[in-house]
Structures are given as C-alpha cells and as structure tokens.
Amino acid sequence: MKYVVSLALLAAVCLLAAAFYPRASAPQAETPAAASSTNDTASSSKQEQGDGEAQANPSSAIEQVRVDSKLLGREMHASVYLPPGYNSKTPYPVLYLFHGYGGNYGDYAAYLSLQSVTDRLIQSGQIDPLIIVEPEYGNSFGVNSKPDEGQDPGSVSIGPYEDYLIQEIIPYMDTHFSTQTARAGRYIGGISMGGYASLYLGLNHRDLFSRIGAHSAAIWNYSSSDQFTDQRDWLYPNDELRSIRDPFKLAADPSKLQDMKIYLDAGASDQLAVQDYALYELLQEQDADVTWSSTPGGHNGAYWGGMLSDYLIFYAGTSLSED
C-alpha cells in the first residue's frame, strides 16, 4: 500500500549533515564502511550446494566473486547472497543491490545485516528465497562516462560502467548461478547513489527489471535544496545527457513505466526526502505503480538498516499488495 508523508513534514525537513552523501575523501560516518574483499572464491563453488538430499539445517551463504571485465579492463568483484538450501536446479529471483557513494560491494552484507535479515524473512515465509548481488561499481552512478564529458568533481569513477553492469555482470550471474532470467524475476535497488543507479538502470533497461527500489535516492530537481551540485553537473553536463540520465526526465516517459513496480523512501530528517517525494509525485501523475514511505531517520546506516526488511518484502514478499 502507499504511504504518503504529509507536506507539513516535508516542509520541516532540516538541513542535511555534511556527511549525508560523503565524498571518497570525506569521513564515512553515515555510510557503511567499505567491505573487505578478503577470501574471494570461485563464483561457481556453491553451484552444487543443495543438490541431492536436503540438508537437515540448510544455511545461507555469502560468496565474494571475481569478474574479469573486458569493458573496464580489470578484475571486478561482487558479493552474492545465496539463500538457505540453495539448489543449482532451482531458478531463483535475483536482486541487484547498489551501495552508496564512497561505499563498496558487500556493504549490505557486512554492515546492514543483510544475511541475517534475509534469512529471517525467508524462514518466516515473508519473502521468497532469492539471490542478492552487490556489484562493485565504484562512484560511477552506474552510467557510461568519458573523461571529456563534464568537469570531474574529483571523486567519481569514469568509464563504461553501465555497459559493464548490463552486458557483463548480469550475464555472468545468470550463467554462474541459478537465477530466473525473465524480467519478472529480476529486481534492482540501492541506497543514495545506488538509488540513483537503480532508477537510471531500471528505467533505461525496463526489459531486464520488473521492480525498482530507490532508497534515499541521490537525485536532483534543480531546486535550492540540491546537494553536491558538482556531481549533478558532472552527470548532466548538457541537455542531451540529462535527457537520458535524469530520473525526472525518464519518469516523464510513460513507456518506461509499463509493468514496473517502484518503491521510493527517505528518512523524515533526510533533506533528500524533498527531491525523492517530488519524483514520487511525478510518478503518480504518470499513473505509475509507485509506493512512497517515510519514517523517522536520516541519511545513514541506522535508517537503512531499520528499513531493510521493508525493502526486501517489496522485492520478494510472498503477500504483496495488489494496489
């Protein structure tokens, strides 16, 4: 069901703390710390888990995998959650989950209790078993970019990241793990910069994803409350690139919203609630299947950790609302 925050609450949103959306060189107090990449293993090692006789007490697993990216010209990584009793003969829905600016792959698993929360929801029957992929994508916002496109604010990751995520990561996961390959069983979401990336990739590749979750999404509506405008201007250096990168522009195209479920949220004391709610209003005007949620909290791990169950129920809930 849809939860609509009051206009009075939005009007009272306080000025955001400087660490709300940290640069790579800034303190990371409100962003989950970068996850360790130790103990990387071959991605196929859990393919046979669950084959044959059922285990008495099946457990979930977190795999750290390596992907040889030809597009980026280097080895990239991903953290992969496999549900309890994972069986390579059973196709599972898959969620691609993106970290925030200055974060790293594996942040959800390492700092937001992703494994224990997901296990609990699966075991209680609140969500279906699923695979969750946290891909490495730097501070790229998930877009294809070139050095000469805009003024580099000094901490973004430049390169063909969209192509890497769509053309390399998704096929890799579909061939190395037992995933559902139809769009109905593939979801995308993220926090802060990851919320932007999920909107950008989900709306531009609606043939691949059926659900988009943008949690405390870092987006801009060119109002006086826009934050980190140097990053905004790097993403949107001209009208042409803005037309294909700006979620507000993408949401104005009804064809991108067909058969798509979208979940937007932000903490009540997060200044990004203003921009995120404005996007919610635009999506409502387009008659999109969109949900808005706002509860007490800021732009930090405490808020996202507290909301993680709600996020997972949106993606994979067994009793989803039809409205």
Score class of each variant (00 low, 15 high):
residue 91 P to F: 06
residue 69 S to N: 04
residue 171 P to Q: 01
residue 311 Y to N: 05
residue 286 Q to H: 03
residue 300 N to I: 06
residue 311 Y to T: 03
residue 151 Q to R: 15
residue 150 G to S: 09
residue 159 G to Q: 09
residue 82 L to S: 03
residue 323 D to R: 12
residue 240 E to Y: 11
residue 88 S to E: 03
residue 119 D to R: 05
residue 139 N to P: 00
residue 173 M to N: 01
residue 287 D to E: 11
residue 168 E to S: 02
residue 129 P to V: 03
residue 180 Q to W: 06
residue 183 R to M: 01
residue 23 R to T: 01
residue 290 V to H: 07
residue 183 R to F: 04
residue 234 W to M: 06
residue 85 G to M: 13
residue 131 I to S: 05
residue 180 Q to F: 10
residue 271 Q to Y: 15
residue 249 K to G: 01
residue 316 A to D: 06
residue 225 S to H: 15
residue 209 F to V: 03
residue 206 R to H: 14
residue 109 A to H: 13
residue 273 A to E: 00
residue 70 K to G: 03
residue 157 S to H: 05
residue 311 Y to G: 01
residue 244 I to A: 02
residue 13 V to I: 15
residue 229 T to N: 08
residue 57 N to R: 13
residue 102 G to A: 02
residue 271 Q to D: 12
residue 183 R to S: 05
residue 84 P to W: 07
residue 321 S to K: 13
residue 17 A to C: 14
residue 277 Y to Q: 12
residue 82 L to H: 09
residue 22 P to L: 02
residue 143 V to H: 08
residue 319 S to M: 04
residue 287 D to S: 12
residue 2 K to H: 14
residue 128 D to L: 13
residue 180 Q to H: 10
residue 279 L to P: 05
residue 7 L to D: 11
residue 257 L to Q: 05
residue 202 G to M: 08
residue 9 L to I: 15
residue 92 Y to L: 10
residue 87 N to Y: 08
residue 234 W to D: 00
residue 245 R to S: 04
residue 199 L to C: 06
residue 2 K to L: 12
residue 145 S to G: 04
residue 286 Q to G: 02
residue 158 I to Y: 01
residue 244 I to C: 08
residue 24 A to N: 03
residue 47 Q to F: 15
residue 90 T to L: 15
residue 134 E to F: 08
residue 41 T to I: 14
residue 65 V to R: 10
residue 91 P to K: 15
residue 267 G to W: 05
residue 232 R to H: 08
residue 178 S to M: 07
residue 269 S to M: 10
residue 278 A to Q: 10
residue 246 D to E: 11
residue 74 R to E: 05
residue 243 S to E: 01
residue 41 T to H: 11
residue 220 W to G: 02
residue 289 D to Y: 10
residue 68 D to V: 11
residue 54 A to I: 08
residue 254 P to E: 00
residue 296 P to K: 04
residue 307 M to S: 09
residue 232 R to S: 01
residue 220 W to V: 01
residue 152 D to L: 09
residue 210 S to D: 00
residue 246 D to L: 15
residue 222 Y to L: 11
residue 280 Y to A: 02
residue 37 S to E: 00
residue 288 A to K: 03
residue 50 G to E: 01
